[in-house]
Design a binder for these strands. Sequence first.
DNA 1: ATAATAAAAGATGTTTTTGTCTTTTATTAT
DNA 2: ATAATAAAAGACAAAAACATCTTTTATTAT
Lengths: 145, 145
Amino acid sequence: MGIFSKTCEYALRAVFFIARRTVEGNRVGIKEIASGIDSPEHFLAKILQDLTRRGIVQSVKGPNGGFYLNQQSLARPLIEVIEAVDGDGLFRDCGLGLKECSSKNPCPLHSGFLEVRNRLQSMLESITIGQFNEDLNLGIVVLKK
Amino acid sequence: MGIFSKTCEYALRAVFFIARRTVEGNRVGIKEIASGIDSPEHFLAKILQDLTRRGIVQSVKGPNGGFYLNQQSLARPLIEVIEAVDGDGLFRDCGLGLKECSSKNPCPLHSGFLEVRNRLQSMLESITIGQFNEDLNLGIVVLKK
DNA sequence: ATAATAAAAGATGTTTTTGTCTTTTATTAT
DNA sequence: ATAATAAAAGACAAAAACATCTTTTATTAT
């Protein structure tokens, strides 16, 4: 089990992929995205449909259609994608699964977790969907294998 | 989705619960553990059977039997329980699900993740199963609700 | 030895996650 | 208008996670 669901992993790789194509001035089809990030095509389609409904990615149907990102979406922090897909449980729920864990009524790991996941959260708030385009083009970072 | 599997959450709550009873000098039965940590009894039984096989908790059958922790187990870092149940994926696998993600061939989040999860890892290495017994007795920390 | 106890093991069921395949709808170029 | 294109939506299936119930085995007290 990774830190995110498989669904979320695909979503994140996909938005990075779409961002890169977008700044090149192109829309990109589901087939190309799926093969570009090594994900099951139809499964990814569902994920992107959902993100589109939520306004996190943009799409148009028909010839020359495909997915893309508007300026607002390119500037979006990664955490918005994660919360849209996996919810905010990773940042809010008790590490031991307690319903009412809080600073008033903490589980043994409460304070330790607080620090670690605040860091995770602020990291994911500071990273944007569009910030890796150049690194992706240069091959400094990758989205498959 | 929390950071750990449900199975792992139950395992962690259970070992804390057993630790507390152990230092009081008692073995504790599965029924009492399950109700003490609010978990499904038979499901927890499986989990503890597995941890027993791995030597992470101890048990004896029959009257006056039950689960307990020897000195070595009481001193065990929490990460050993987590790795026994969920594996080490949380600390090793790529956040975006790439098979070959590394510093040589990083995903966009590679370096950011490295820092956060090294912190998580060292936190879980420094906490021991037996270190919350007093806080549990005083009600400063809790294992259910 | 026997009965009672409690973990271990086995069988089975449910729900969620992940994945595939087909049909429909919207858009564009001709 | 029509045909081609590509996302959207729907139906279905496999696998994994989560959960329950029953039977067996080991241990202890009598």
